[in-house]
Design a protein around this nucleic acid. Structure first.
Lengths: 216, 216
DNA sequence: TGATTTTTGTACCGTCTCGCATGAAATAGA
DNA sequence: TCTATTTCATGCGAGACGGTACAAAAATCA
C-alpha cells in the first residue's frame, strides 16, 4: 500500500535489483559522447561515466553504437518536449522564436567551459557519413525542425502577425539554419552575446522590425 | 641551366628522392578524415590512402593530429581561393551569393554517394570540443566568412543594389548560417534540389525579390 | 530456509593501434 | 667505383580497445 505507485512502473521483477538508473546512465553516456565525440569515446569512458560495469552496460544497452543511438533518441525526445512547451500557450511567432533560440543556447552553453554545442550536430554530423541510421536520424531531425517552423510561420501569416507574401518554407529554412549556425558556433567557443545577436537578427529578418512602442 | 626553375623550388637534395607528392598526400589524407571523421581514422587508414609508409608519413607530417591540422589549413586556403575567384569580377551581391552557394554545394556533394558535406564542419566540429587549436581554427573560419559576407553586403548597400536600412552584420550572419545549414544537410543526405532551394531562398531574403524582367 | 532469477564484479581473449627500430634502396658527390 | 645522405619498406612490442565468460551477490518465490 505504501508503494502503490510502483505497481504500474515496476511489478517487482524476480532477480537482483539493478544498481543504476537507465535514464541517468543514458544521460551520463551522452555527456561523454558530447565532449569527445562518438568515435573517440571508449567503452572504458562510458563505464567510468555511468558507474556501471562493462557487462551491465552491454546487457542494458547493447554495444557502443546501440547506446549512442539511444542517446540520440533521448535528446530528440527532450527537444520535442521543449518545442511542445514553447508553443503550449500559443505565443506570437516572435516570442516563440526567441524562446526556441534562448532555450537552445541555454543547452548549447550549459557547460562550465561553455562550448558544448548541440549534441546531435556536434556528434552525429561526423558519424553520419559512415552510418546509414545516424544519417537518417539527422535528416529526420532537420526535416522535423523545418516543419515545426514552417507551420508556426504559416500560422503567423494567417494571423497577420507577419507579412504574408514571403515563402513560409524559405523563412522556415532560415530559422532552422540559424539553429544550425548557433549549434556549431557555440561549439567553436562563441560568446553568448554574439549568439544572442545572431538569433535576434534572424527573428527580425523573419518577423520584421519589432514595433518599439509595443509592450510584448 | 636547363633546370634553372628547380633552383628555387628544389636545390636537389642529396639523398633518395621521395616517392610521394606532399600536396597530394594531404588531399588523400583529408579524403579519409572526411568520410570517417578524425577520431575514427587510424594511421593504417592514412597509410593506405596516401600510399606512403608509416615512417615516411611521420617524418613528413608528424603525428595524426598534425596531419589533420594541415588538412584543415589546406581546405581553408582552397576556400579562400574560391572566394577570391568569386569576387574577382566584382559581381552584384545576388550573383556573388549564388556563386558561393553553388560552389559550396558542388564541393559538398562531390561524392559518388553525394553526402560529403563540408570538410571543416563535418570533421572539426566534433574535435573542437576537446582540442583548443581546432576550436580556434573553427572560430576563425566562421569569423572570416562573416566578414567576407558583411563586406560585400555593405558594398551592395552602398551601391543601392539592396535596401540600405537592414543591418549588414545580421544579413551576413544569415548568409553564413545558410552555408552552415547546407554543410550539415548535405552530409545528412539532402538532395541537391532541396539545397538549391534553401540557398536561393536566402539570396532572396538578403537581396530581395529578383526583378523578373531583368536579364542578370 | 532453500531454490530460482537477475544483476554485479573480475578477469580474460583476440584484435587493433601507435610509434619506432632496423636494414635495404636510391640518389648526389668525389 | 666508392662514400655520404636521404628515403623507403618491413616488422615489432607495449598498450588500449571492444566484447564476453564465469562465478559471486542480492533479490523474490515457495
Amino acid at each position: 500500500m505504501v508503494q502503490k505507485e510502483t505497481d504500474t512502473s515496476s511489478p517487482r521483477p524476480r532477480g537482483r535489483p539493478r544498481a543504476y538508473d537507465p535514464g541517468q546512465a543514458i544521460e551520463r553516456a551522452a555527456e561523454v559522447f558530447w565532449k569527445a565525440g562518438y568515435a573517440a569515446t571508449s567503452l572504458d569512458d562510458l563505464v567510468a561515466a555511468t558507474g556501471m560495469n562493462r557487462p551491465s552496460l552491454y546487457a542494458a544497452f547493447g554495444d557502443k553504437r546501440a547506446l549512442y543511438l539511444k542517446t540520440l533518441d533521448h535528446y530528440r525526445d527532450r527537444n520535442r518536449a521543449l518545442a511542445a512547451a514553447a508553443v503550449a500557450d500559443d505565443p506570437p511567432l516572435r516570442v516563440l522564436m526567441r524562446r526556441i533560440y534562448a532555450g537552445a543556447l541555454d543547452l548549447y552553453l550549459s557547460d562550465p567551459e561553455g562550448r558544448r554545442g548541440c549534441y546531435t550536430l556536434g556528434t552525429a554530423t561526423t558519424v553520419a557519413a559512415m552510418d546509414d541510421d545516424v544519417r537518417a536520424f539527422l535528416a529526420a531531425s532537420f526535416s522535423a525542425t523545418d516543419r515545426f517552423f514552417a507551420e508556426r510561420i504559416r500560422l503567423a501569416q494567417a494571423r497577420g502577425e507577419i507579412a504574408g507574401d514571403a515563402d513560409a518554407d524559405v523563412l522556415a529554412a532560415c530559422a532552422t539554419a540559424t539553429l544550425h549556425t548557433l549549434a556549431v558556433r557555440s561549439r567553436a567557443g562563441a560568446p553568448r552575446a554574439a549568439l544572442d545577436r545572431i538569433a535576434e537578427g534572424t527573428v527580425t529578418v523573419v518577423c520584421g522590425q519589432p514595433t518599439p512602442g509595443a509592450g510584448a
